[in-house]
Design a protein around this nucleic acid. Structure first.
Lengths: 329, 329
DNA sequence: CTGAAAGCGCTTACAG
DNA sequence: CTGAAAGCGCTTACAG
């Protein structure tokens, strides 16, 4: 492992000149430049960026906090973040929290111990106030999240989806929610209710089934609907995974989708398109969210005061084969 | 941003004592320890790990090279790697190469510039010889990969899958491969051929359709089979995604799976189970692979000579609803 | 058990 | 344009 001093020695210049040749070549004479480059080759020198970063007191790394990297929606967002980070010379430290606050804290500590310059949190809620002073942006969150955030309008989007369903003629619309206290669940449930209200339909508690955003829980939720005296004619799921699990259970239970019951999702993960039937869903701009989250974090790291920045990106309903008018009955 | 000197000053001890109190408390008297801890609280000190790592000439980070993090199989492996890394005090830098060698090189440079201590490559082939001297382990690779590697026996696994199909009575078995020059494709194709041979079936070129491991390409491959004079009665896909895409296209083309054609996958991603019909597939121990890859890399980083280590993990055929005996005809 | 001092590899005012 | 020197925050022989 050679260092800058060794290069200086064999080039016959000072370490300062080598350093400048590397980072500010315009401040060095042609002649010195050549000597330095030759010496670098000769000794096989690679700059020690760990030293550079230490000196600059910057790690040029960010951590992305994600509840579960296995979720295809999140992995798309992360891919976009990483793409952008790479362009800007930043590394991304994976922070899969597995939904535990202990692990979340460990990752957040990385920035306190200067191993990272900031965090992007892919989650509905932000951390406790203690961490608010570190560069932080929330992506895929909810209304009311403190600090800069990039998100969609969950309430309006869900309302629009319910509106689409009622426009098809549905009146008895079930909803599969995430865990009750999850902010996404709360917002989307509110959207569901507004959608109902807008169509003059009364809210019925028995039509909401609680899941946890996994396929397995979607399956379960569908089974719950089977136990009702009357099946809903449409089911609005708060994410795609649960919608996929639900169609599976519905079909296994002898019902046709969409002829007997329509099903909708949220996110538009790649599998939604290939599912049978193709899943009607609310598409979120995953790539755009990731890109903007990274750009925003960089601005915060550079000192911009952006705590009131709230970028709300548009969603788009993608109509496929899992929805149609309710059965004539 | 307070530092160790400030703590020493307010504690009335030397910086050496503070340093020891932090890393080797047993070498410090109770009294000093208390003074130091009080001072840390008083000045709100957090150790600068960037400085610590610089001094230790270790970054305590590894990079994981992955062709596409969006792939559920890889994301499961990564989750396991990260879990283990976190336990051992290592950070994982995400290196989504998007299949380009330029990006791969940029990530590998991270270890040459000392920003990472080693790399785990999730891919069938290893890098060129130039990088062989850095701590490196290959996971999810193929036979013949240089350096330490953790993988399954792709040839035997595919052969076993074909064996399962022939035991069901199939004689005309199509295969959907990845890109022809991909080492996984090569190994698995070899397994396919051995499986055929073992059952006394001649290999027919028209029965191999080339894909690229995406659902879209699986769909395409199925369409290719539709153009044959005679459809295969079973299709063995080299991964789950393509198998899912293929069943979709098969069904869209009016064929029943498995009654008209059986379909098998490879990997056992979570979606395989929920697909309709449930996909019969060759399960790989994703979690185990990730965990062992991390443990092995750590050993290499610590200087063990493991370049001949090759851990071959067992696969397991998971039989679901996408396979049955061929139509009586 | 404790402290003074050197040093990790780099960058950057400061003089020249 | 160039070099000597200080310093980033920490750790660790070396003496005591």
């Amino acid at each position: 492992m050679s260092n800058i001093r060794e290069v200086a020695l064999t080039a016959g210049v000072s370490v300062a000149t080598v350093s400048r040749a590397l980072t500010n070549p315009e401040k060095v004479s042609e002649e010195s430049l050549k000597k330095v480059h030759d010496a670098i080759k000769a000794v096989g020198y690679t700059p020690n960026l760990l030293a550079r970063n230490f000196r600059a007191a910057k790690s040029f790394a960010i951590v992305v906090l994600v509840p579960d990297i296995t979720n295809p929606f999140f992995s798309q967002v992360i891919q976009a973040i990483e793409d952008r980070a790479q362009q800007k010379g930043y590394a991304v430290l994976l922070g899969d929290t597995r939904e535990t606050s202990k692990r979340e804290q460990e990752y957040v500590n990385r920035v306190e111990t200067r191993l990272a310059d900031g965090v992007i949190q892919l989650r509905p809620q932000s951390m406790s106030s203690s961490t608010q002073k570190i560069p932080w942006v929330n992506a895929c969150g909810c209304e009311g999240t403190p600090g800069p955030s990039i998100r969609v309008d969950n309430i309006a989007a869900t309302k629009a989806m319910v509106g689409y369903l009622t426009s098809l003629g549905h009146r008895r619309i079930g909803v599969i929610s995430g865990l009750k206290d999850n902010p996404h669940s709360i917002d989307r449930l509110q959207g569901y209710k507004s959608g109902l209200t807008a169509a003059g339909i009364a809210f019925e508690k028995e039509l909401v089934a609680e899941g946890d955003f996994t396929m397995w829980s979607g399956q379960n939720a569908a089974k719950q609907f089977f136990r009702l005296k009357q099946m809903p004619t449409a089911i609005c799921s708060m994410n795609d995974e649960m919608a996929l699990g639900a169609t599976q259970a519905l079909k296994a239970g002898g019902l046709r989708v969409p002829e007997d019951v329509s099903v909708t999702g949220f996110d538009d993960i790649p599998y939604a398109k290939y599912w049978e039937p193709g899943l009607t869903t609310m598409a979120q701009p995953a790539e755009e969210i990731g890109k903007l989250a990274m750009d925003t974090l960089l601005r915060v790291i550079e000192g911009e005061e952006l705590s009131n920045l709230e970028l709300v990106l548009p969603t788009e309903i993608v109509i496929r084969q899992s929805t149609c008018a309710p059965p004539a009955n």
